[in-house]
Nucleic acid binder design. Structure first.
Lengths: 219, 219
DNA sequence: GTCTATAATCTGATAGAC
DNA sequence: GTCTATCAGATTATAGAC
């Protein structure tokens, strides 16, 4: 008499939703794999279907379009970015800030940012460059991106850097180093080893003196 | 008796070659137009044929593949880059180098580099990022790129900066500013106005003291 | 050197059966 | 939710007529 005995009825709606979400996650994970193999623009629905054990057309019951998949990846990517930044914040900036601690925190932050970028060049391309012709992140995904930048601003503010121009210079410095490393010395460390020098230069520009990076064993 | 009267024979081989080169140049110019309209990856042979008054297939008698067209664009782009750098060099570094002159030259170079990047974002993408999936510049085109960087190194050396790491930091700084400007504030000046500050920071890092950028009316 | 014709393949996406 | 079948079109590239 109830849904229990009816084979076509769902067991419980939230279990169904969970299964559906699991499938979506699986598709997005496969998309990341493919994109790392064939480039960001090289993602093909057919390949994606093959990878996930489905016909390409069936993916459309999970995502309305290819762009919606890119959007899910964008969302995931910025969640990961925010997490990476937050980790540094909680690890290093909560205690009272001596000059050396501030400097250390900034060096750590720079290394983490750089590591995040070069560890996944395709993700870097999706998050930080505008390379997919007509892709525009959804409002929801964009909000996550904005929140991630707030996270970073908070981290800088905790160190005493609140000047918006200094923040912009900071992002330019870090993306510049990351970009050069990815583009011109993939797998090497030609720009990675300049991070501490760059951070010291930036610290001085912001009137925060530090003798030398105190942190060790960070890379 | 001679080729003069023979309609099927070429007038003069070099004239024929010139015409051919002219057609190639025309195709590449049209490719630049299209690429600025539809994005770097959005270049389609049909559009290109339409634009140049030719069937798409006929283009293959000038270029063996689409990649060969990208390669010609890459070549042109780095020629332009080298020219832009060389212009700064000849304008500002030949005279004996006082500290202020060195600083001025560096500020000028930074502004020119930045201007070159943001004035044509698609060109920037082709020259400085790896965004076309399987495109690798030919040896000839790559040689032009290398020469362009030599040009820049010479400019820096004339100012007294010969440390390879300083040169790498310099490129990271400039591409970082350019990249942020293109990606996050297209058409604006949010990062452009940080150039002088960044250069001053860099100068200090290299123990070249300058009170302030002397050059005016540069942007 | 440019054309027509066409190959052979891939693209994202939809309709409708089950 | 997954399938088959298929659309409508773009892709690079080649063959052969003129």
């Amino acid at each position: 008499m109830s849904a229990r005995a009816d084979t076509s009825a769902p067991a419980r709606p939230d279990r169904r939703a969970a299964r559906r979400q699991q499938s979506k996650d699986e598709i997005v994970a496969a998309a990341w794999d493919l994109v790392r193999e064939h480039g960001l623009a090289g993602l093909a629905m057919r390949d994606l279907g093959d990878r996930v054990g489905m016909r390409a057309q069936s993916i459309y019951s999970y995502f309305a379009s290819k762009h919606e998949i890119y959007d899910a990846m964008f969302h995931q990517g910025y969640l990961a970015f925010a997490a990476a930044i937050a980790e540094v914040k909680s690890a290093d900036t909560d205690r009272a800030g001596s000059v050396d601690q501030s400097a250390d925190a900034l060096h750590l932050m720079a290394h983490r940012f750089f590591e995040f970028c070069i560890s996944d060049p395709v993700r870097y391309q999706l998050l930080f460059q505008r390379t997919i012709p007509e892709f525009v992140p959804s409002d929801a995904s964009y909000a996550v991106a904005v929140e991630a930048y707030h996270e970073m601003n908070d981290g800088l503010a905790a160190i005493g850097i609140t000047d918006p121009q200094a923040v912009d210079l900071w992002t330019a410095l870090l993306t510049g180093l990351s970009d050069q490393q990815i583009s011109n010395d993939p797998g090497g460390d030609r720009w990675e080893r300049l991070i501490d020098r760059a951070v010291a230069m930036f610290l001085h520009d912001n009137n925060i003196n530090s003798s030398a990076p105190t942190q060790k064993g960070n890379r």
